[in-house]
Nucleic acid binder design. Structure first.
Length: 453
RNA sequence: UCCGGUUUAGCUCAGUCGGUAGAGCAAGCGGCUGUUAACCGCUGGGUCGGGGGUUCAAGUCCCUCAACCGGAGCCA
């Protein structure tokens, strides 16, 4: 029976007749003995295989190229040399799929920019193996968190006729001829449709039936953003809770972030150590600190005051009524507080129409969670549940209430205070791994001008 | 989209004052009884991002386009 490298390396005692399948990471030969290491993606480490001239195909084994697919059967023995506890003494090496000398992934350090050009092979490298193992673990941790609290997952539609934020920048979905003057009544859906930018409105529908729900799916933005933190296709998590206000929203968000980070630490300890050593020094301490200590909370008004009296000269002068700039967010979370911070109660004019108006008439019950090195990782709010106020806000944002008839119905029939937030999955993954470019935490990144693979 | 930077061997990079191209690693071959990104020797490898210009002469100076990187905006 074939075993995974992770299981084999966890063996308690030497064993006969162990079989492993995987890809050669590195190979070296001396006179009369050859070594190669096999990795199968199950863990960071590879299994060292020892081959000796007694093998029927020793000449071929001696010349194995990096990247070859092999199946090795042999005896698991304690390694006499330093560098590994176990090694596999090969009795039989089957070269399932040979590689070639020009294999682009060489046994040396490559730049992430180069590796992006070979996304079909970079997953066989240590760094990307670790990234995508952690990506999986993080995803499972998210589902585990909500499942254990009785949340129901909503599969929000990917093709949508609604425009959540009232903004443009959506990818159009159509079967109409290119170049023809669009008559959307003749289009596939009989109306203009796009790829979703958010599942929030649909999540609100389900929250008013299941109380606590979440979405977890791909979202799409046709923005011409050329930064290390933006992609045209990314995954988002959007919980929505009925009978919940902004305080409850923040409590869930904080428990959520600390829980999923804790689970990654427990489940991917070796990968976290790898990132700590190779990618971001101090990563493990950062994550452990996040799990251990409570987040800060400050109002937008307090944040602006803190920025004003900081004595710092910012490129954009902080002023009440202006949105916080990246440099402002960075100062608050990285320098002033040195930990995650919720900034709440933003001016109504710079936030979305559905956010609940506070009693002061100037601010809305919104919250952003800022974390060091990544910036805004969560944005959320209590939703406006008062029908009249919501309609007024829509008109102020030049939105037609009629096209949101079903959204307004939620306020007519059994509306409740409710709240939710959105988290960019890749942003969270960047925070957890220390990777600094979103293109390096998505299997195949879609960014302006780039959709190879 | 804006600002700045980069583009030279498969990879990472050097290239002075404008004078026809270099290193390390990788690869190929040989050597070496246990290696750890093995080591030692030899060999091969270039449309200097594309296009245009200045010049006797351009990797080098100028213009232009493109890609990539960093930052900004937009945001998650």
């Amino acid at each position: 029976m074939t075993e995974r490298v992770k299981e084999i390396l966890g063996s308690e005692a030497p064993r006969e007749d162990v079989t492993v399948e995987g890809w050669v990471r590195t190979a070296r030969a001396s006179k009369g003995i050859a070594f190669f290491e096999v990795n199968d993606g199950s863990c960071l480490a590879s299994l060292q295989v020892v081959a000796e001239p007694g093998l029927a195909n020793y000449a071929e084994v001696e010349g194995l190229h990096v990247g070859s697919a092999v199946r090795v059967r042999g005896r698991l023995a304690q390694s006499p040399a330093k560098g590994q506890k176990w090694e596999l003494k090969a009795a039989d090496v089957e070269i399932v799929g040979p590689s070639a000398p020009e294999y682009p992934l060489q046994k040396k350090r490559h730049s992430f920019e180069y590796l992006r050009t070979i996304s079909h092979l970079r997953v066989r490298s240590r760094t990307f193996g670790a990234v995508f193992r952690v990506r999986h673990a993080l995803q499972m941790a998210i589902h585990n968190f909500f499942d254990s609290r009785g949340f129901v997952q909503v599969h929000a539609p990917i093709i949508t006729g609604s425009d959540c934020e009232g903004a443009g920048q959506m990818f159009r979905v159509t079967t109409l001829d290119l170049g023809a003057k669009p008559d959307f009544s003749k289009d596939f859906f009989g109306r203009e449709t796009s790829l979703t930018v958010s599942g929030q409105l649909e999540a609100e529908i389900f929250a008013l039936a299941f109380k606590d729900v979440y979405t977890f799916g791909p979202t799409f933005r046709a923005e011409n953003s050329n930064t290390s933190r933006h992609a045209a296709e990314f995954w988002m998590i959007e919980p929505e809770m009925a009978f919940c206000d902004l305080r409850g929203d923040m409590a869930i968000a904080e428990a959520f972030v600390r829980s999923i980070v804790g689970e990654v630490l427990a489940r991917c300890s070796q990968d976290v150590d790898f990132f700590d050593q190779q990618i971001e020094k101090g990563l493990r301490a950062k994550l452990e600190g996040l799990v251990a200590s409570p987040f800060e909370v400050m109002t937008y008004t307090q944040a602006v005051a803190a920025l004003e009296k900081s004595g710092r000269s910012f490129e954009y002068k902080p002023a009440w009524g202006m949105d916080l700039q990246s440099e402002h967010e960075r100062f608050l979370t990285e320098e002033l507080l040195k930990r995650p911070v919720f900034v709440i109660d933003y001016p109504a004019d710079i936030k979305a129409f559905y956010m609940r108006m506070n009693d002061d008439g100037k601010t809305v019950a919104a919250m952003d969670l800022l974390v060091p090195h990544v910036g805004e990782i969560i944005g959320g709010s209590q939703r406006e549940e008062r029908l009249g106020v919501l309609e007024e806000r829509m008109r102020a944002f030049k939105l037609d209430p009629a096209s949101y008839w079903w959204y307004l119905d939620l306020r007519r029939y059994g509306g409740t205070p409710h709240a939710g937030f959105g988290m960019g999955f890749e942003r969270m993954l960047m925070y957890v791994t220390g990777m600094t470019n979103i293109r390096d935490v998505i299997p195949f990144a879609r960014t302006p001008g780039s959709a190879e693979f």
